[in-house]
Each structure stands twice: as structure tokens, then as C-alpha cells.
């Protein structure tokens, strides 16, 4: 028996979310009295794989196959489902990112295993198996019972603390049986920006809304984000207007994020905006209207004109950093 965790890699490297997944799987395996096994698909160096052992992973199964260099949901589903069966998985843990969201439902049907998606905590109880998940766009947590023998959980990014628990880990190579699988989609082109901190990976996010008045006023937001090693984001009207790239749009119909710190500048705090950011650990609001709803979601607030407040904040931060 086992808890299987799919640890995706990005050009052979893991990210913080991979270790969050490992930590979660290790703790879940402990609760279920079984072993956590990581599954890694594609080329990942030994040193990189070893990092998983720091978070309690006792065994990693690696699969390298020419048929797996391109991500195809049907092919990957088959590989992970086969492993879940051969390793008698009691639970499969995936990230709630694009990859996890596309694999979890397919695995669910293939393995007849119930899914809870967007989970941030360990199960509340084991029999029945109940786990809390995000519901109503962040306006509630649902206690969801998973009624099947095998369970699937997708873990929300930046919601589960890393738990260091170094163990000895074995690395096993496995073969994938891809017989009869022909990926149907062909990739014509890829546009990818490398080296930029992704909004979903950022622990600090500085975000601007319509109250910024013009795309020409974004320099202090970028400077602030840079000083804090964070990423920039925006409200929907700002991306709709083309002031900022659409990847930055947060909210119900944009990115759903949970950074440690979200700084909302000139953002009113509409429910649809809050739906994407309310899981942030701390929210700071800067707005010239003291009655703006964003202040109800924020722990810290400054009532003032952004064009005046921001430059002073940037200066103060520079000073604090050089002190």
C-alpha cells in the first residue's frame, strides 16, 4: 500500500510546490499507516530527486520514455493509473495547478476514485474520509467525504507548510507501457517566457487596479514587487483595458492565488476579485476611499492617493532594506 504523489518537474527541476506535495503526501501516508511514493516523469537528475527525501519521501519511481516528453493528458493518466494500481495506492496526491487539474478527473474515472480538489489541509478524519476543500469561490470550505477506497487529492499551491523530515530514499526506475496510445493533439507552437517569476509561484504579489488611473503609472508597482522579490498582478478591468498582460489578472475569472502577502493598490475589492485572492495570508490595501470593501479583507490599510503613497512606500522600503 502507498500514498502516491505526482511530482512534476520543470526542465528537470522541482519547485517549492513539489516539496509542499511531498510534505503533504508524507503526512498523509503517516495518517494512513503506509508509505509515501513519489512519481517523477521525464529526466530529473539524482541530486534533484534526492531533495524529495528531505520531506519524508521514502521511494521515488522515475519513468523516462520518449512517448512522455510531451505532456498528453491521456498518456499521463494511463501511466499514473497503472502505477497507482501496481503500488496499491490508497491515495494519489497531485498539485491543483494546470497539470493536476487535467489529470485528477481522468484518474478519478479510470480508477473509480473520488476527488477533492483545491485542498489545503490534511483530512479531518479517516473513516469516513473527510477533507476540507475550497468552495463557493473562497467564500466557504466544504467538508467533503470521499467515499471510495482510493482517494485523489489536488493540493492548492502555497497552502501547506513544508515539513522537513529527512529519510533514506530509494530511487527505482520503472517502464511505462504506452502500447496502443497515440497522442491525439499535436503541438504547433509554444510561446514561453522563462526566468520570470510566475504569479502562481510568488510568495509576495503587488497588484494594481483601476485606481492606478493609467498604465503609465505602473513603475512604482513593479519597483515594489522587485524590492520584495514578488510578482505583479492586476484586477480584471486593468487587463481588459490592456494596461497589463492578461496573465496578471487575478480573481474568479483569472488566477486564483494564495501568496503570503498580497498588496492591493487602487482595487475596490469586488467579490469576484476577492474570490481569487482571499486565501492570501496577509492582505495590504492602499485606496483613497476609506469605505472601499477591500479594507474588510485587509489586515493592514493605508487610506490615501496611490500616486502619493506608493513612492513614499518604495523609498521607505529601500531604506529598510539597506539598514
Amino acid at each position: 500500500m502507498s500514498v502516491l504523489v505526482y511530482t512534476e518537474n520543470w526542465n528537470g527541476s522541482f519547485k517549492k510546490l513539489s516539496f509542499e506535495l511531498a510534505s503533504y503526501a508524507a503526512r498523509l501516508a503517516e495518517m494512513l499507516n503506509t508509505n509515501p511514493i513519489a512519481v517523477s516523469i521525464g529526466q530529473v537528475g539524482r541530486d534533484e530527486l534526492e531533495k524529495l527525501s528531505k520531506y519524508g519521501i521514502k521511494k521515488t519511481i522515475t519513468i523516462e520514455h520518449d512517448g512522455l516528453t510531451q505532456f498528453d493528458t491521456q498518456t499521463y493518466t494511463r501511466v499514473i493509473a497503472d502505477l497507482a494500481n501496481s503500488q496499491s495506492a490508497k491515495a494519489i496526491v497531485l498539485s491543483n495547478n494546470n497539470t493536476g487539474k487535467s489529470l485528477a478527473p481522468r484518474l478519478s474515472v479510470r480508477l473509480k476514485a473520488a476527488v477533492a480538489s483545491g485542498v489545503g489541509q490534511l483530512p479531518e478524519q479517516l473513516s469516513p474520509f473527510v477533507v476540507k476543500k475550497r468552495a463557493f469561490s473562497g467564500n466557504a470550505q466544504a467538508g467533503l467525504e470521499l467515499k471510495t477506497e482510493m482517494k485523489i487529492i489536488t493540493l492548492a499551491q502555497n497552502s501547506f507548510e513544508l515539513v522537513e523530515k529527512p529519510v533514506d530514499m530509494v530511487i527505482e526506475k520503472a517502464e511505462a507501457d504506452l502500447s496502443g496510445i497515440i497522442p491525439k493533439a499535436t503541438v504547433k507552437d509554444v510561446e514561453i517566457q522563462t526566468g520570470k517569476l510566475l504569479l502562481s509561484d510568488a510568495e509576495i504579489v503587488v497588484s494594481g487596479g483601476r485606481g492606478m488611473k493609467s498604465p503609465d503609472n505602473w513603475a512604482p508597482i513593479e519597483e515594489l514587487a522587485g524590492l520584495l522579490n514578488g510578482a505583479t498582478a492586476c484586477s480584471r478591468p486593468v487587463s481588459d483595458e490592456g494596461w497589463r498582460p492578461h496573465e496578471e489578472h487575478t480573481g474568479q475569472t483569472g488566477k486564483i492565488i494564495a501568496p503570503n502577502l498580497y498588496v492591493a493598490i487602487g482595487i475596490s475589492g469586488a467579490t469576484q476579485h476577492l474570490a481569487g485572492i482571499s486565501a492570501s495570508k496577509y492582505i495590504v490595501a492602499i485606496n483613497n476611499d476609506k469605505d472601499a470593501p477591500i479594507f474588510e479583507a485587509a489586515q493592514y490599510g493605508i487610506v490615501g492617493d496611490a500616486s502619493r503613497v506608493l513612492p513614499r512606500l518604495v523609498e521607505a522600503l529601500k531604506k529598510a532594506k539597506s539598514a
Binding site: S108, V130, K132, Q141, G143, K147
Partner: peptide, 11 residues
């Protein structure tokens, strides 16, 4: 169904 919601918790 494979799941059942037992209860909701407001944030």
C-alpha cells in the same frame, strides 16, 4: 456519486 459534502464552513 463518489463524494458527499457533509458541512460547509464560512471563512
Amino acid at each position: 456519486p463518489l463524494t458527499r459534502t457533509l458541512a460547509y464552513e464560512p471563512p
